[in-house]
Write a protein that binds this DNA or RNA. Structure first.
Lengths: 217, 217
DNA sequence: AAGAGTCCGAACCGTACGGTACGGTTCTCT
DNA sequence: AGAGAACCGTACCGTACGGTTCGGACTCTT
């Protein structure tokens, strides 16, 4: 037999269609749950087979090996993340600014969710092994997708004369830094978020306000 | 016997004096090296004993168990990190701003070093086990120490009328965000830093410039 | 000089987990 | 209805690693 799935996941285009069968998605969801409360050590093949009521043989048939399973979990979760659409967001300056705030709030919502934290912990823990499949997956299917959308949003803001910057990537990174600060790493390390940090809307608006001080036209 | 060392490390005050014997420090340095290139899995008790030419018995005697060893590595490395002193840094506005830049540059230098990255990866990977000893250690002995010094620095800047803000912690977090952006998490995930991101001095000055736009008096 | 203490090196044990094999059951297709 | 695939459950194997034990060498103290 060949562990085809493991290879496909790493190399297929992000918009590849079917990806996983419904049954497999159920199993991956179980894997994700195990991972969220318990960390990587809690996700054993035997444990997942028991929890998801499937056989280990099926796991190995579908995902090749344990690494393939982990990669599949990452890919599956990445495919679940959705961002609000941005149609007609530049109608007027206020709407655009509100739209940027909404984007940042969604970003915070994703990054601070237990699921995202668990997958980031997993990928980071594995980042110096396996030629770093997981880290790349998370970056390509997660961060880079988001950053592309963000750059796009900021560019339209600039075209409409609402923002002023030279490099969209640079501007986005500043926006990211203003919004996330060191909260992400602290959450990854297991510290709880403060009440103020849990008010994502307020945090987003504060960050966008400061961003406009730096890059507003 | 009792694994005294493991307990002491977690509960002793950060300024406790001797901490580790020279021989133990050599062993911990070997452990750190193993950890930096190879990740957590590369740090096995047998492997460390071989590399450091000591017996496993000594490891268990000194550090209690493997977790105690990991905690000792974190504590040891934290004790190695030194920041430049800040005597007479508020002589005039230029000097102070340069001092802030130097602080940020030092911060970047620490956070982006392979050693720090390896320990962060380790702590993050363990953050949902062991009641999270490592994460707390890293936060208390690392981040919180640094943030205290930073707040102190910013406060003196404010007292001298050079900066303007309500909450020093808030201001520091903004400075942190402007300097680090998403580079830290990307490095943790195994992505290489871009050439521009490796120019720590330029990155620090850019961040401080923006910080002054927001908080300069 | 002898006893105690420290440490190295190696052998050993138990276990947990990744991976495989197999018998039995259900579902699908013709 | 019958062949065949997919799949579940379980038992099994090999290995890697955490932790313990022990013999022997070296040092320090009295």
């Amino acid at each position: 037999m060949m562990p085809a799935a493991a290879f496909d996941i790493a190399t297929s285009r992000p918009d590849a269609a079917p990806e996983f069968s419904p049954r497999q998605q159920v199993v991956l969801q179980h894997a994700l749950t195990l991972l969220v409360d318990g960390g990587e050590k809690a996700l054993t093949t035997a444990g997942l087979a028991r929890t998801a009521s499937c056989s280990k043989e099926s796991l190995y048939k579908w995902f090749g090996d344990r690494d393939g399973l982990l990669a599949a979990v990452v890919a599956y979760q990445a495919s679940q993340v959705q961002f609000p659409s941005e149609t007609g967001a530049t109608a007027d300056p206020e709407t655009f600014k509100a739209h940027v705030s909404a984007f940042v709030e969604a970003l915070l919502g994703v990054l601070f969710s237990e699921t995202s934290l668990a997958l980031n912990r997993l990928s980071i823990g594995q980042s110096n092994t396996n030629s770093n499949r997981l880290g790349h997956l998370l970056l390509v299917r997660g961060k880079h997708m988001i950053s592309a959308r963000a750059r796009n949003m900021l560019e339209t803001g600039r075209r409409h004369g609402l923002l002023k910057f030279d490099d969209a990537e640079d501007a986005y990174q500043v926006l990211y830094g203003l919004a996330i600060r060191d909260v992400h790493i602290r959450l990854l390390l297991g510290e709880a978020a403060s009440p103020a940090e849990k008010d994502l809307k307020a945090q987003a608006e504060m960050a966008v306000g400061r961003f406009y001080q730096l890059f507003g036209a």
